[in-house]
């Protein structure tokens, strides 16, 4: 296991450099004059030749590898430039938006994994029964129902008609309490903070605002996990060791849960890296629809305003987060599947 983790860690710098190179290459597609404008505040007045002077000042006329180095140096020191759409530094804007996104994704992961595995298991052990047919329909619609259509429909019904689940992160009265000095913001994640503050009304309010976004964000990934679990269960149940276990006279419960389900989980673990990436992509649409001031909404607004430093900084941050999450997934995969360790 140790050798596997070391091998995986050795790959890490390669991937990280690759990610920065890719972002840098995309940035270089933009001409020097446009890149200079990222550093100039609106209303700045200069004479003829100012652009050329600025291009030279910021080193945009130097060879690409030098520019990559200076850029990387800034990135390493946490300087991602100025975001025009957020009216603050990109790093600061990302820091402010992060808790909302972290809260949303953390709340979405659990229903996906547990409900997905459980329903896939039930579906796989009841092949072609009504419950299986229902899960298959759920899985296929999950692939075809766009996040932005699902989100709008949910809002239409559960906010417009019934008024149960409003958009945003908190109601107005709760927001006032959270911003007041009586409430201590530990993490910026309202669900966690309200528990730490012991304020149950805020907790209920935060949870109420979380229901629709979580459903919207998790539906597609949930359908994916369910589908993989089902087919993996079907395949495992045909294996010889399952027949052997049954022939030994083990109870059906032991056969299904100990022999079949454990092995059926391996493909689910394989797909979970992809699932996380998909989930973080879906955040952009979900936060935009439900007006959650997180990373996704920040990126969508930056994109709409053609705010280059913001969108590139966001992409870089996202890339790093995903690289590290993937590392965790791979290591846990090695723990689940002994074959990986001795590859």
């Amino acid at each position: 296991m140790g050798a596997y983790i070391v091998r995986r860690l050795m790959l890490l710098p390669v991937i990280l450099i690759g990610v920065t190179l890719l972002i840098f290459l995309m940035m270089m597609l933009v001409g020097p004059a446009n890149r200079v404008s990222m550093y100039v505040r609106p209303g700045y007045k200069g004479g003829v030749g100012t652009i050329e002077k600025l291009i030279h000042k910021y080193g945009f006329d130097r060879p690409a590898y030098e520019q990559y180095y200076t850029w990387l140096d800034k990135v390493v020191h946490g300087n991602l430039g100025w975001s025009q759409s957020a009216r603050m530094g990109v790093t600061q804007a990302i820091g402010q938006a992060l808790p909302a996104t972290a809260e949303l994704t953390l709340c979405s992961v659990w229903p996906i994994i547990f409900l997905g595995i459980w329903m896939g298991f039930i579906s796989g052990t009841h092949q072609d029964k009504p419950i299986d047919q229902i899960t298959r329909v759920v899985a296929i619609t999950g692939w075809s129902l766009p996040i932005f259509v699902l989100g709008l429909l949910l809002l239409m019904i559960f906010y417009g008609v019934t008024g149960w689940f409003p958009p945003g992160r908190l109601s107005l009265w709760a927001q006032q309490i959270v911003m007041s000095s009586k409430f201590h913001n530990y993490t910026g994640m309202y669900i966690l903070d309200s528990i730490l503050n012991g304020n149950w009304r805020i907790l209920l309010d935060a949870l109420r605002h979380m229901v629709l976004p979580v459903i919207t964000l998790s539906y597609a990934s949930w359908a994916l996990i369910l589908r993989i679990m089902r087919s993996s269960m079907l395949e495992t149940l045909r294996q010889d060791y399952v027949r052997t276990a049954r022939a030994k006279g083990l109870s059906e419960k032991v056969v299904l849960k100990k022999h079949a389900r454990r092995n059926a989980l391996i493909p689910v673990a394989t797909i979970s890296g992809l699932m996380i990436i998909g989930l973080l992509g879906g955040v952009v649409l979900t936060e935009t629809i439900f007006n959650i001031h997180g990373l996704g909404r920040f990126a969508a607004q930056a994109a709409l305003a053609m705010d280059l430093p913001a969108i590139l900084g966001f992409a870089l941050f996202y890339g790093f987060v995903i690289v590290f999450l993937n590392l965790l997934v791979d290591i846990s995969y090695g723990l689940i599947d002994p074959r990986v360790r001795y590859e």
Binding site: L21, L22, I277, L280, A302
Partner: peptide
Amino acid sequence: MRITDIFMTFPFLVAAMVLVVILGR
């Protein structure tokens, strides 16, 4: 395959979004 890995690091929607901002709407 390493280049493939690097391209796959970004969520498809996010990567496309970034490139559209650079190329123009």
